[in-house]
C-alpha cells in the first residue's frame, strides 16, 4: 500500500513538473510571439547609426553608418568610413529569433524600475553559433530590452536596448549598449616582448577584450520599399 502511494505521489510530481515546464515554454513562446506582432507592420526600415567604442587598448573615433533592415532578418550596413559594429543586438529582428530559438519563460525581473519578463531561448538548430541566450521583454510595449549570451568560449555579451516610439506606432531602438566581458587573461607583456618592434604581431595573439559599445539610432525611415538588391552584399 505504502509503495502504491509513493508511486502515485511520484507520478503527480513528474506530471506536475512536466506541466509546469510546458506552461513556462508556452508562456515564453506567447511572449515572443507578442513581440513579433508588435513589429508586424514593419516591412523594412532605414536608420542612421552613430557608434562609440570603449574597449581596452582600442581607440576608434565615433563611427557613423546607415543600417538597412528588411523582413524577416536581412541587414545591410553602409558607411563612408571604416566602422565596426557589434554582431549582437544591432537590429533585433524578432522574426529571426522565433524562427531560430524556442522560448521559455523563466521569471519576472525588474530593470530600471520596470517589471520585465525573463525568457530563456534555446537554438532550434544544434549547429547554431549561439546555442542559448537570455532575453528580457518589457510587457508594456513588447520590446526586448536586454539580452545576454555567450557567443563563444570565454566571452559574455550583454546588450541593453532603449526604445522610442516611431511614427506613433512602433517601438524601435533608440540607444543600444553592448557590454563585452572576457574571462581569459591577457598574458602579453609588452615591456619585455621580443615582438615589441612589430606591435601588430601582438594583436594576433590577443584574447578578446573587455569593453562596451554604444550605438545611437536616429532618423528612422519606415516601409520605404527597400530593394532586395541592396541586401545582396553583406556587411562583411
Amino acid at each position: 500500500m505504502r509503495t502504491h502511494n509513493l508511486l502515485i505521489c511520484l507520478a503527480v510530481f513528474i506530471l506536475g513538473g512536466w506541466q509546469l515546464a510546458f506552461a513556462q515554454a508556452a508562456r515564453g513562446e506567447r511572449i515572443l510571439a507578442r513581440c513579433e506582432e508588435a513589429y508586424a507592420g514593419i516591412e523594412d526600415y532605414t536608420v542612421d547609426l552613430a557608434a562609440t567604442i570603449n574597449m581596452e587598448r582600442v581607440q576608434i573615433p565615433e563611427m557613423k553608418a546607415t543600417l538597412y533592415f528588411k523582413r524577416p532578418d536581412r541587414i545591410h550596413v553602409k558607411s563612408g568610413n571604416f566602422a565596426l559594429l557589434p554582431r549582437a543586438g544591432l537590429a533585433m529582428p524578432v522574426t529571426a529569433l522565433t524562427a531560430r530559438y524556442t522560448a521559455a519563460f523563466e521569471a519576472t525581473d525588474s530593470i530600471e524600475g520596470k517589471e520585465v519578463y525573463r525568457l530563456i531561448l534555446m537554438a532550434r538548430n544544434p549547429q547554431a553559433p549561439v546555442q542559448s541566450m537570455t532575453i528580457w521583454v518589457d510587457p508594456s510595449n513588447h520590446t526586448i530590452v536586454q539580452t545576454t549570451s555567450s557567443p563563444y568560449r570565454g566571452r559574455s555579451v550583454t546588450v541593453k536596448i532603449r526604445h522610442a516610439l516611431q511614427e506613433g506606432r512602433f517601438w524601435l531602438p533608440e540607444r543600444m549598449t553592448a557590454v563585452f566581458t572576457t574571462t581569459l587573461p591577457d598574458t602579453i607583456d609588452e615591456a619585455n616582448d621580443l615582438f615589441a618592434a612589430k606591435p601588430q604581431l601582438q594583436e594576433f595573439r590577443r584574447p578578446p577584450r573587455n569593453g562596451s559599445m554604444e550605438i545611437r539610432y536616429s532618423n528612422y525611415r519606415l516601409n520605404t520599399g527597400l530593394s532586395d538588391e541592396l541586401f545582396k552584399t553583406n556587411p562583411e
Binding site: R87, P151, P208, P235
Partner: peptide, 20 residues
C-alpha cells in the same frame, strides 16, 4: 589579409564596414 589577420580577435564580436 594582413589587417584582417591583425584584427582577427574582433571578428567574433563585430562585423566590419569598409576596410582599414
Amino acid at each position: 589579409r594582413f589587417t584582417e589577420a591583425s584584427l582577427r580577435s574582433f571578428h567574433q564580436d563585430f562585423f566590419f564596414i569598409g576596410s582599414l
